[in-house]
Design a binder for these strands. Structure first.
Lengths: 242, 242
DNA sequence: CATCAATTTTGAATTGCGTTCAAAATCCGC
DNA sequence: GCGGATTTTGAACGCAATTCAAAATTGATG
């Protein structure tokens, strides 16, 4: 009896539609102006139907974030599978982040909001669990690179756990996103290309960890070249920008 | 004619009262449950009176954040004036951050929310300017430490501007706050003391910048000792916790 | 193909909360 | 202690999220 399955599939498709449309609405008129009634109109469904999928508006926002976290994970998985030096792979995590943000310019705006206490706690417990589950592979990917580096002798942990070491790079990336998306903050600082700078800082940090082979932090050309290489070898189909 | 001045003073006092009470309310029952009518009740004023001070609820939240940013600035100013090696002072910026967060446990929850597009844009332009103005000294403090380090020969910029270098440390701190306050994220990672770890990562990063004198990243005792020293010499009256 | 119970969809009605504003109270100079 | 200006008040308003009873659709059954 395929009836039930078809129903489920259609339900899932509709959910996807709602997520897509809400992303469009947010792009068009901002997160601030996202209204359930307008969204319903845009989806050509009644408001009540939206609530069959999402327990609340906050729930929807967290679902949006989760869906994008899955794409994010995909990028990281590629990096983890890339055949290259451990240090290059770790650096590539930063590049993946950079590419992800470029491809999903409003992801961070949404997630920054969705992960705030206010929205987070207004979302349903299931949705929160889904989000955490979607994030787990990211952590595992990155930790596996660290473990690999240690086993190859490229890196010494100096008493840290692989997770603790990851947290440094993670915080650096996360903080960069945050600063970029907080209006007015980086403007005063005259930062040109915050994400390129982030990659430079990752190199600095990896050097600080003594992760071999050390990079020359002053050599921007080398960093750019490595970024190009990563874009070509790992994300060839993801980024067409030069 | 002191009447007008007295009025202004009373107005300012009332504003302070409102801010204090809202902080209490948030502590008691969460940011999610902050309601203007309850706040008015707690302040023993009418709702309308609140709106003489703040254009909207969002405006109030941003004002809260700004007020705390001022205390934050105070800590940084002390660090900048501290007579010590440039590297110790830069590290002390991280310690200041750690102390600030310990003293103001809900600051970050509130600011994380207040700086989201949704709240930020719903606050009044004046309030936004106030916030940015309150943050500027922070940037200047930190940049001055970098400049000092360069002039003393402790650090080479390698083509970065002092601001660009600061951004790395800033992002690291900011990202750590963010991860700490995103529920469930660090839990899986089994991070014990995220802020201590942040300080370690700052040391790693400063090493990566080649900021002399280099620290031994594996020597936790040394880091703890330095943290103690900073607490004693710079923040003696701020932190009583061991 | 008609029937009908179960399921799904609908959108007007409800609700809750932020915000407003006309009326009341207070202030202050004369 | 008078009267205009200023401030405070809180009931009323409006908006947008959410609900839920009624309508529509579905699909199994004879």
């Amino acid at each position: 009896m395929g009836t039930k399955e078809r129903r489920q599939r259609q339900f899932a498709e509709r959910e996807q539609l709602i997520l897509d449309r809400s992303r469009e609405l947010i792009r068009e008129s901002g997160l601030l102006n996202l209204q359930m009634s307008r969204l319903a109109e845009k989806c050509e469904y009644a408001v009540g139907t939206l609530y069959q999928h999402f327990a609340s508006k906050e729930d929807l926002l967290l679902a949006l974030t989760t869906a994008q976290a899955q794409e994010h994970t995909e990028l990281f998985r590629r990096v983890a599978e890339w055949k290259a030096l451990s240090r290059e792979r770790m650096f590539a995590i930063g590049v993946a982040d950079k590419i992800f943000v470029q491809r999903n310019p409003d992801h961070f705006r949404i997630s920054q909001f969705a992960l705030c206490e206010v929205v987070w706690h207004a979302a349903s417990p299931d949705r929160r669990e889904d989000f955490l589950a979607a994030c787990q592979p990211i952590g595992r990917c990155v930790a596996s690179i660290v473990e690999d580096a240690v086993s190859k002798g490229d890196l010494e942990l100096n008493g840290l756990s692989p997770q603790e070491l990851c947290t440094g790079v993670w915080a650096l990336c996360n903080g960069t996103h945050n600063l970029v998306h907080t209006e007015g903050v980086l403007e005063d600082f005259a930062i040109r290309d915050a994400y390129r700078l982030m990659c430079q800082h990752i190199q600095v940090m990896l050097n600080g960890f003594g992760w071999k082979p050390l990079a020359d932090p002053g050599d921007r050309k080398a960093i750019d070249k490595l970024m190009e290489k990563i874009k070509k070898e790992v994300f060839h189909d993801f980024c067409c920008d030069k």
